[in-house]
Design a protein around this nucleic acid. Sequence first.
RNA 1: CCGCCCUUAGCUCAGACUGGUAGAGCAGUCGACUGUAGAUCGACUUGUCCCCCGUUCAAAUCGGGGAGGGCGGACCA
Length: 326
Amino acid sequence: MDTYELITRNAEEVVTDEEVRKLADDPADKRAYVGYEPSGVLHLGHLLTANKLIDLQEAGMETVVLLADVHAYLNGKGTFEEIRETAAQMKAQFIAYGLEEERTEFVYGSEFQLEEEYTLDLHELELSTTMNRAQRAMAELQSGETAKVSHLVYPLMQTLDIQYLDLDLAVGGLDQRKVHMLHREEIPDLGYEARPCLHTPIIADLTSGEGKMSSSEGVTISMEDSTEDLEEKVNSAFCPPTREPDGDLENPVLELFEYHVFPRFEEVVVERPEKYGGDLTYGDYETLAADLESGELHPADAKGTLASYLDELIAPGREKLRELRS
RNA sequence: CCGCCCUUAGCUCAGACUGGUAGAGCAGUCGACUGUAGAUCGACUUGUCCCCCGUUCAAAUCGGGGAGGGCGGACCA
């Protein structure tokens, strides 16, 4: 797989393709980042962007993980002390998951976001951004909730972070699209250069196959799950025997194979009783999906396999969590 | 500073005028059917009715006070 392909694989959108191709030509020492509101427990949503960071490291880039403590504070997630505590746990789990410690810079937002120059730039952004625009860019805002001033400052800071962390590429879920576009539009007016952005897809809800998986409602798979939890959650997932269910629905089991299993494993073995045809081995997502579509691979077998591979992915983080809590 | 509206199940809300300790939809749980899930049937669970005080035999409901949230007006020196 060439560098460009590695950088962009499984990405839903790249802005712009031309800029990212240039990055791929000379990835050494280039810096890419994802910002996370500190959370005590990593879930699949976090791991999806982490997978991309691992790809980028493999491509030779430096990666930066922003532990966005100030953002979390602005979003009402607790005191700074509490937030830093969960941030430390988050960092440990990322490393356990597979981010290379020596090639990942973990940065707390408060390390640079409270400095004078940053603050003055922030005020300049406030001056030129309408409340409407800022609110629409605020992905974290619950729909229906009335925005606080802090919610409007939040995306403006994200916009600035990309400059202040000296990045060459911003990574995030597709839900971060509006912030990134705000960055690209506004940051040149401050005299800085807009950076390219890479967006991962938003995975469908496990039980319904619709919309996006939400950490606040519905079933979430996280580092806290035991092997039995995983089996139960995956088994109850929506999984019609096709890769393209009716309407806007997706097949979340296939999505998990595509975005979580195959990027981390060379080979996937489906252990299957002789009665149903014996074991199957897949080297890539496409053939597995095609087999599900044709009926060669039964959803129940796909689920059992998915659960055990997810379990393997989560095991180190789960162990780390246990240590942190003991 | 003034005025109006809202607060009841996990969610959206009904019930309040005409007091009798609560309902619907959705969600959830459990079975049946599928070698998964869903769909479809069948069954089931869920509550400090925002808080306090008062009236009453009896308050989600009436009266008073308070809290939280939303909206508008005024002020614009």
